[in-house]
Each structure stands twice: as structure tokens, then as C-alpha cells.
Design a protein around this nucleic acid. Structure first.
Lengths: 244, 244
DNA sequence: TCAAAGCAAGTGTGATCACAAATCAAAAAT
DNA sequence: ATTTTTGATTTGTGATCACACTTGCTTTGA
């Protein structure tokens, strides 16, 4: 009976080969649109057409329409009565609504994470912080795309540690919804050269390193509130100017 | 120039006619599946096939597959690596995870609602409570479907008053996820004839009527925790029995 | 007798087509 | 000149088909 030998051989093969994993076209379209949304590549109120996106992504309409449908159910996009779909416009109420939800849920997530993050995870987010500093050092090129990516990595590395399979998708949905909004805020920050975000992140890291859930929550709230309050005042002044 | 006259006529017509609203087949399929999920018509771990559902709903596969995709993104269904889709199985961790998220978010929603519900809204939920009592009175037929529906109406009438367009879809997603779980709990409650749910709901109503946000939140937590703790103990005893 | 190979039915995915509704621009009427 | 109408183009929706993968059963071989 060679069964054991064959089994050993198979195991040896399995140890070398990584599972290839079939990713459907729809999944790629979905990820791509997510990335674009969170990164703020689409602007608020912009309408998207199925055929247009299909052409841009070089596929047929089928994967695109299903990806759009999924994004609509997570409120990342909006279905108009005309059956056309657009990225939701910014309003003052929506801004406040989003911020409140993010404080509630991301605050809870980081409080949970504070008790569960080991030295391993702390090291990871410190690495991300290091990359941030590096980027700031050679600031000749204000790479806002990279800034957005690093910010996202930093936060989600923390949230992943909260151990909740329910909260994380909700946070992703919230980021998807606030992505188009905060892009303009980050851009403005980067231009104005204001107090850098890294400082806020550092406070979060020290709180997490000392397992201080309360401090972590407060630091996080301060961090995510900034772009919202900035945008809020900007919107208000714009509204005031409109009225004149 | 008859422009004004025509305009007036159109307005008169518009006042009488209700907008008909075009509902797509996909929307109907989606709503139907949602209803089934929240109502617990599907049991955990059950696999669903596109063609099977299309036959059952008497449509083609197209609307079904898009509705399934949407439900998967809200975690109401689960995509297996085999590309087949099933309703998520119940585990202890998932139960705790869901309850924690529901306490967090629905608790916040009801606290917000407490400050915003007027006599009009209070009257509405009291009406629902009345229907509940009515149903309890002639209890010869334990209509668990109606019980589920009334429970849903009661809660969402409150949540709708919280004024957050962001929180409500999240709560819907949470109900979608816990629907298949709590069905078995409600069924067991209804059979055991335990302390009725209406009593918990009454406490919520009095708290809301007096605008006591804290009491409302606590009553709500007590209400939604019950089926979860019940299921939890049931699962644990089942696991203990398995081990013997 | 039992495990492995082979075959057949079933299933998800993507492409294409037909159709209805919406949008936009040019032409006609007031 | 302004408004209305008309027609062409665009767009979303649903149906159908082709293909690839999975699954379960039968058959074959040891």
C-alpha cells in the first residue's frame, strides 16, 4: 500500500505551492471601484454609467452592474429614481451623520483592539508610521494618494485586531461613504501644510501600546473628527457666500 | 399665455395622483429574500442556488443573482470558496459579536430617537403594541410570523425616528444577519409561553414617552439580549452534549 | 471489496441581445 | 425669441446562451 507515500508526496507539493484562488471579474471590478471611492477619485454628485465604467475597466457590462448594485446596498453609491447611479452628494447633515456613526463604531472597535493588540500588531502600525515619516521627509512630492493609502492601512490594521467580524464590514462601509468627502479635506490639509496627521496617529499608538482603551478612543475621535470639522466649516462658509 | 393655467392644472393632477414608482424585478426579489431572511424562513447553513430561487420566485436567474450579490455584501449571506452561497451558520462567537454590535448601534439609535419622537410617533408604536396584545388575547393560534413582523415594525418605527440615514441601513444589515438565528429563539419563546415580549416593549415605550434616553437604551438592551442569551445557553448545552 | 478514474448533471459567471425608459438636440410652432 | 414637440442616441433591465468548474454517481481496475 503506497497510500502513505502518495499522501506524503502531496503534502510536500502543497507545502511549496500557494493556493491560486479564483478571483472573478466582478470581484476585481468591485475592488477597483472601492479603491477609487475610498481614495476619492470620484467626486460627490458625479454620475456613473454602467457602459462607461465597463469601457474604462475593459470588460462587459455584466460584472460592472453587479458591482454597482453591491456598492449601492452599502450606501457607497446612490440609485436615483431615474435608475442612474451617482456618488452621494455632500450635505451638512450627512457629514454630521457620518462622523457620529464613525465615532460610535470605530471608537468601539479601537477600544476592543486596545485590549487585544500584542507587540506584534503594535510593531506593524509603528512600521506604517515610519513609512509616513519617511514620506514626509522627502516632501517635495506631495503624494496624496500614498497618504490616503497609508492612513487606511494604519486604521484598518488596528480595526482588524478588534476581533469582530461584524464591526469591520460596517467600518468599511463607513469609509466607503466618507471617502469622497474627506478626499478634498486631506488635499487641503496637505496643501496648507497644517499640523500633520502623524502626530495624531502617534498619540493613538502610545495609547494602544499601554492598553489604554479610553485614551485610544479619544485620540481616534480627535483624528477622524478633523477632516469633518474642516469640511463642515468650509461648507458653511460656501453656503453663506451663496446666500449673498 | 396659458402657461400658468397649464401649470396649475398639472399641480391639481399631481395632488390627486400618487407616484406609481417603478419597481424592478430585482428589487422585488431582493425584498422577498430579505423578508425571508429576517423572518427566519431559511435556516443557518442552508445553501441557496440561483436557479432554484429563480424557479421558486418565477423569474429568470438574472435578478436573483444580483439580489444574492447584494445580500452577500451586507453579510446576510455567505459566499463559499466553491462559489455557492449559503446562509451563515450560527457559532457562539458570531452570536456574541452580533449582540454586541446591535447593543452598540441600536442603543445609540434609540437614544437619539428618545429626544426626537413626538406624540405622533409614540402613538404609532403604542398602536403596534395594541395589535400585539390583541394577538396575544386570541392566542389559540400561535402566529409566529405575525409576531416577527410586529416586532420588526415596533423597533424600526423607533429607529426611523433617530434621524440618521447612516445608522438605519446598518441596523437593517444587523437584523438581516441575526434573523436566521433569533427565529429559533422566538419560536421557542412562543412555545414555552414565557414572559411575553410585550412587557419589554412596554418599558421601552414609557421610557420614550418621558424622553428618558438612558432608560430607553437599557430597556432595549434587555429586550434584544433575551433571544441571544437564550440561544447562547442552548448552543452551549448542545456543544456539551456533543462532547460526551 | 474497495479505492480511483471517468462521466454526466448541475451551477456560477460573463457576454450578447432585445426592449423600454430617459436624455438631449434640433426643428417646429406659438 | 421662447416654448413645445419630435426624433435620435444613450442607458438600465432582463433574458438567453456559452463556457468552465464543481459535484455526485457509476464504472473500472487492483
Amino acid at each position: 500500500m503506497q497510500k502513505a507515500a502518495i499522501e506524503r508526496n502531496n503534502e510536500a507539493i502543497a507545502a511549496q505551492l500557494a493556493p491560486v484562488g479564483r478571483e472573478t471579474v466582478q470581484d476585481r471590478v468591485y475592488s477597483e471601484l472601492r479603491r477609487a471611492l475610498i481614495g476619492g477619485l470620484f467626486e460627490p454628485s458625479q454620475v456613473l454609467t454602467i457602459r462607461g465604467l465597463a469601457d474604462a475597466l475593459v470588460t462587459s457590462t455584466m460584472p460592472v452592474r453587479e458591482a454597482l448594485g453591491r456598492l449601492i446596498t452599502e450606501k457607497a453609491l446612490e440609485a436615483l429614481p431615474n435608475r442612474s447611479v451617482r456618488v452621494p452628494p455632500i450635505t451638512l447633515e450627512r457629514l454630521d451623520d457620518l462622523l457620529r456613526a464613525r465615532i460610535l463604531i470605530e471608537g468601539e472597535a479601537i477600544a476592543l483592539a486596545a485590549a487585544r493588540m500584542g507587540p506584534r500588531q503594535i510593531a506593524t502600525i509603528e512600521t506604517i508610521l515610519g513609512e509616513w515619516d519617511e514620506m514626509r521627509a522627502l516632501k517635495h512630492k506631495k503624494d496624496v494618494d500614498r497618504e490616503v493609502t497609508l492612513n487606511q492601512s494604519f486604521h484598518f490594521e488596528i480595526y482588524r485586531s478588534c476581533g469582530s467580524a461584524v464591526l469591520i464590514p460596517m467600518i468599511e462601509s463607513l469609509w466607503l461613504q466618507s471617502g469622497p468627502c474627506i478626499r478634498v479635506a486631506i488635499y487641503a490639509f496637505s496643501e496648507a501644510g497644517e499640523v500633520d496627521t502623524a502626530q495624531y496617529h502617534r498619540r493613538i499608538v502610545t495609547a494602544l501600546a499601554t492598553q489604554d482603551a479610553q485614551a485610544a478612543r479619544e485620540s481616534l475621535v480627535a483624528d477622524i473628527s478633523r477632516p469633518f470639522t474642516f469640511l463642515r466649516s468650509k461648507l458653511q462658509s460656501a453656503a453663506a457666500k451663496d446666500q449673498t
